[in-house]
């Protein structure tokens, strides 16, 4: 039946990909207010890759992931998960092959970690042993602690653990490391990489640039319900006209006489931005732009209070594409 649909429908994919989304659209209506959560989104995630969805709050990441999980029904568009489509009579078969960690879930408050995992384990015909999963997320010492006594990070790890108790081929992790301490985050990265090593596919969302850069094979930047950039983290950063930044803090007393515009004419400087005495040069190569900038500053008699250079991040890619920051609350 699905085979026939494949043949007559030119829009249907080849079924090789882990996820194929075509023209996905989801609108929420509440009274007169309509929110376009996903607005014609196309995406293809290959098997065996760790794919990251990056975007500001409300970009539509969770909605997209939940459509993939079969929790949300899109208004239009095509969804293929591991070659199958939701609501064609194979839902439970798809569910047996995916592992899910929702953005927020409270498990049974009075159940212990082990009991919660045991419940989830019972749903799957095959899967890992509880001890194995406990070790994966480093919750062995907390195995007999009740959910209500766990810290936020421990709850988060339990949520990830429930996604691993079966033998998923495809893992959905919606902000799995939000609220975790750096050590737990790294632990979780290891879990993801170990999962990938066994030829698993992972789709995750995150607000952490370093996480996306270090963990993801490919990243899709989502804004207002669309994928606005797609590629490996390196590709995305290299797509910037200039991928280095020179940040200069001039001494406060120079504020009045400071004119940042001439810096733009220096070699290899692509752009200049100024905020008070703080000037940011976007440069193609630091070793040519930096000496020129220093020379101009001393020629103009502008004392320098601080100087730093940094490599561009995905955040800069987002700012470049939208003119806004990923996180409302300012720079990460």
């Amino acid at each position: 039946m699905t085979l026939r649909a494949d043949v007559i429908d030119p829009g249907a994919g080849d079924g090789d990909a882990a996820i194929e989304l075509v023209g996905l659209r989801k609108v929420y209506r509440k009274g007169k207010q309509t929110t376009v959560a996903v607005d014609g989104l196309d995406l293809r995630v290959e098997r065996g890759e760790v794919f990251g969805l990056l975007g500001p709050n409300g970009a539509g990441k969770t909605t997209t992931i939940e459509i993939c999980e079969g929790l949300t029904v899109p208004d239009s568009g095509r969804v293929r998960i591991l070659g199958s489509q939701w609501r064609t009579g194979v839902d439970d078969a798809i569910r047996a092959r995916i592992g899910v960690c929702l953005q927020e879930t409270k498990f049974h408050e009075k159940a212990t970690v082990r009991e919660t995992l045991q419940l989830f384990r019972s749903f799957f015909a095959t899967g890992r042993s509880l001890d194995e999963v406990l070790d994966l997320v480093s919750l062995r010492e907390k195995a007999d602690a009740r959910q209500s006594t766990l810290s936020g990070g421990q709850r988060q790890r339990l949520a990830v653990a429930t996604a691993l108790v079966g033998t998923p081929e495809l893992l959905f992790l919606d902000e799995p490391t939000t609220g975790l301490d750096p050590q737990s985050r790294r632990q979780l990265w290891d879990v993801v990489r170990a999962f990938q090593d066994r030829s698993g596919t992972v789709v995750l969302t995150t607000h952490y640039m370093d996480e996306a850069q270090q963990l993801c094979d490919r990243v899709g930047i989502v804004d207002k319900g669309k994928v606005i950039a797609l590629g490996t983290p390196d590709e995305l950063i290299r797509s910037l006209d200039a991928e280095h930044f020179v940040e200069v803090d001039f001494a406060k007393e120079a504020n009045g006489s400071l004119d940042a515009a001439p810096f733009a004419a220096l070699p290899d400087v692509a752009a200049v931005a100024r905020e008070g005495s703080h000037v940011v040069l976007t440069v193609r190569s630091v070793h040519t732009a930096l000496p020129a900038m220093l020379a101009m500053a001393s020629a103009q008699n502008l004392p320098i209070a601080g100087l730093a250079t940094r490599h561009a991040t995905l955040e800069d890619v987002f700012v470049h594409l939208t003119g806004r920051h990923l996180r409302d609350e300012g720079k990460p």
Partner: peptide, 14 residues
């Protein structure tokens, strides 16, 4: 309300 039902819904439990 605590999203537990939807978490259960994405498992092969009927």
């Amino acid at each position: 309300t605590q999203h537990l039902l939807r978490r259960l819904a994405v498992t092969p439990m009927r």
